[in-house]
Write a protein that binds this DNA or RNA. Sequence first.
DNA 1: GTCTATAGATCGATAGAC
DNA 2: GTCTATCGATCTATAGAC
Lengths: 216, 216
Amino acid sequence: MTGLMAPNAQPGSKPAVILDAAVRLFLDSGFGNVSMDMVARAAGVSKATLYAHFRSKDELFAAMMAQRCDGLMDGMGCEALCGMPVAEALTVIARRFFTLLLSPKTLAVHRVVLAESHRFPELARAFYESGPAVAIGRLSAFLADADRRGRLTVPDSELAAEQFLGMLKSHLHLRLLLGMEQVPDEAEIARFVNGAVGLFTRGYAPAVSPPAPSGS
Amino acid sequence: MTGLMAPNAQPGSKPAVILDAAVRLFLDSGFGNVSMDMVARAAGVSKATLYAHFRSKDELFAAMMAQRCDGLMDGMGCEALCGMPVAEALTVIARRFFTLLLSPKTLAVHRVVLAESHRFPELARAFYESGPAVAIGRLSAFLADADRRGRLTVPDSELAAEQFLGMLKSHLHLRLLLGMEQVPDEAEIARFVNGAVGLFTRGYAPAVSPPAPSGS
DNA sequence: GTCTATAGATCGATAGAC
DNA sequence: GTCTATCGATCTATAGAC
């Protein structure tokens, strides 16, 4: 994160308790539908105490979002994947990305950031840099490595990373953001993951090699 | 559209004038940041007149969105494309979809619907059905036809349609929604369109045909 | 630091004259 | 139908006692 301010989150301290309440309320109902009275009551403090720690509602919101964006990409490391067969590694990456993207927490962050990106432009940027941009960067590095080793033929690894993640998001992500669907079950996840990995590996297969699945 | 109500939009009539003002304000600033006073002033009528035509702010917002969703997919017909070579047809479809998706008007609708999908669930559904769902449906039909004619091998045409449109959206759409980028120029559009068409036609190429670019 | 009480401003919706 | 004026509720932020 850039440094939007993340108060010393001594667990149990007043700022931490307030932030926890703010996370629940803001992510659940958005910025405009949550009043400072509600935050104060949910945190079990008075409104004056709240204002003693956060100078305004904007600052509280920004601090809350900064906390949520920080660990967004934990568990998306790609170190151990460079040795695996490409299709297998892509499957692992796709499943991780999907699980993260479709989790209620991540969906809530998307909803709130999108809704308030106009009022908080730096926040929108911080979210993108700490979330989607990291995913693209790591996958792009993995693809560039696969290209160097001849496992795939990827002329534009950044574009390819966007394509792969975009295929997974597809419109399913939009449907979930709009509240039209529940989180998909295993079968539906497998359908998207296998479909994306298949299309991607076929479309970026190395020049003229046989379709041997393991060796090569 | 389902029938959310779209008052007789006699051009020049008071309801039409009010709706025009509401479109500008709501799409620009969202639901919560626009007051009925602002709408009345922008439309050049009094607040009482406004309430004479729309019983509440919610109803005005819904009517405004219904109007914007109606023509959303105009110009996305795929009739004349079934005769063209697949790659060419996909390029046309991709360019149309991209132009539509990245237009300021469509971006604004996305922003507002996403922000208010919690408060207006039927509105979110109506938007999805009249916009993204139509795009998926038409492309899916085109792909199923291409599969029947042996131009592509597409076992799951609906999934494939989602993949193709998702590849185009990628994270570029998100960056634009967040206000981090201007609308891309011709070169950037070509990069995404050609990349998607290329990956898609290679990955869904018919079983064992040569990679001839034009004929076949 | 923490509380209670309230100032000050805004907004959605309505009443009543014309 | 259209206007002016206003009600009642709500929200952010602060003042002042402890």
